[in-house]
């Protein structure tokens, strides 16, 4: 049993489900936004998924996907 230590707040993230794309993931985590808006927000928060791989935007099972912007 881990000691009850309070971790500082850090940026929240999830990992993809099998077969998930950024669009389906966006719909899952940002259901109140339009599909396009949700996908755009997710992209802007997760540029590492676009800029550090080919093809850009290919969602990998091991990806960390941030579900909020960097903490202000």
């Amino acid at each position: 049993m881990a000691p009850a230590v309070r971790l500082s707040r850090q940026r929240r993230f999830i990992t993809p489900e099998p077969g998930e794309t950024l669009e389906t993931l966006a719909a899952r985590v940002l259901p109140d936004l339009s599909a396009n808006e949700a996908a755009e927000k997710l992209a802007s928060w997760n540029l590492h998924i676009f800029l550090l791989r080919k093809p850009a935007g290919l969602l990998l099972g091991s990806d960390v996907v941030f579900i909020e912007p960097p903490l202000g």
Binding site: T21, E23, A39, L47, L51, A56, G57, L58, L59
Partner: peptide
């Protein structure tokens, strides 16, 4: 979004 322009995207 300028950073994504020209990137070969697979799904967006």
């Amino acid at each position: 979004r300028r950073m994504l322009e020209g990137a070969e995207t697979c799904s967006m």
